[in-house]
Design a protein around this nucleic acid. Sequence first.
DNA 1: AATAAAGGAGTGAATGTTCATTCCGTACAA
DNA 2: TTGTACGGAATGAACATTCACTCCTTTATT
Lengths: 194, 194
Amino acid sequence: MKDSDKPDAVIDAALELIAEHGFHGVSMVMIAEKANVGMGTIYRYFASKDVLISEMYKVVENRIRIAVVNGYSREKTVKERFFHLISTLIKYLIKHPLEFRYMEQYHNSPYGVAFRKDLILDHHDREMDLFMELFQEGVRQNVLKELPILMLFSLGLGPLVSLTRDHVFSLLILDDELIDRAVEACWDGVRRHT
Amino acid sequence: MKDSDKPDAVIDAALELIAEHGFHGVSMVMIAEKANVGMGTIYRYFASKDVLISEMYKVVENRIRIAVVNGYSREKTVKERFFHLISTLIKYLIKHPLEFRYMEQYHNSPYGVAFRKDLILDHHDREMDLFMELFQEGVRQNVLKELPILMLFSLGLGPLVSLTRDHVFSLLILDDELIDRAVEACWDGVRRHT
DNA sequence: AATAAAGGAGTGAATGTTCATTCCGTACAA
DNA sequence: TTGTACGGAATGAACATTCACTCCTTTATT
């Protein structure tokens, strides 16, 4: 065996199980079994279930950031960048439904609440900062509506979450064309109408 | 004592506790204590914790429906109706943050997933139907974008959830003017631009 | 009207189960 | 042989649910 696949195996197993059954529907035994690992092994790498869950968050968040930053250029127009960010994000999440479901659960749990405050108030997250920066620039250029940044954020990203969820739960099938039209609609929501 | 306050007391206590600590952060003992009721009493009215949680959903859903339907008239234009529905909904949820938090948790839990499918596929929910009907009419009149109804739904209501959450967690203060501007922006998202 | 019996709402300690976490034994590497 | 990664049975705490009991109200009986 390589220099320990184990932690990764644990994270992958946990991701799959939690996406399906929720944080509290999944026991450490279930995770250990799915990962083909002993109970004790999990605790060698993660101090507790809570720590495991938080580590998973960081892992997923990082994967998303990497996907989204790829191909992003500060040289492009605000509109182009907006389109790139939103549609890349939707496409990534649709391709990785387990990660999407995991994130959704995390954000809507007691973990997520405290986290959310830090995130936005302390500006610690680089992915978020990308959006902040973009929206700020958009407002400065009179391209976007003159609203609090956080509101632009909700207007631009709120539909994304809802749409992705519908797709993940097969209530709707988002193909590339439909995604484009959705992003166009989000853009209509945030952009300034002369 | 009146003809049994107990079940209501249980629901109110549970609502408060669950909004704060999440489904699994709340034990039946905690609920009983907060409601000033014996453990066994809860089980006289609700067969299990799961049943209690589902009943609570129905109660909250109904309160919301009543608030939203009030003042709604099929005679008004699509735009007027859209504004009425969305802003009434935001205002109600801001006024009842416990109910908002409860609903959010429910929708993002294993309960909510199955539920969500029924809801949309079986058209059983009257509040939802109000939106469906409105969007359908809007598309027919060429007032709204020609997109799947479910997409219009996400575009119109996605930001609402996100905005309300920001307000409830004090990341943003939504006054009436800001709400109006937010709904205006949502409208820009779904409406057809000539 | 006074008294008794029934019925059922309300209670909370006791139960059995589930789970996170621990800890000790095993296997393998150096 | 010593040390390190691993496994999984054992532990104890927390929890949902039950049940035998206590009122208290309503109804029946005299």
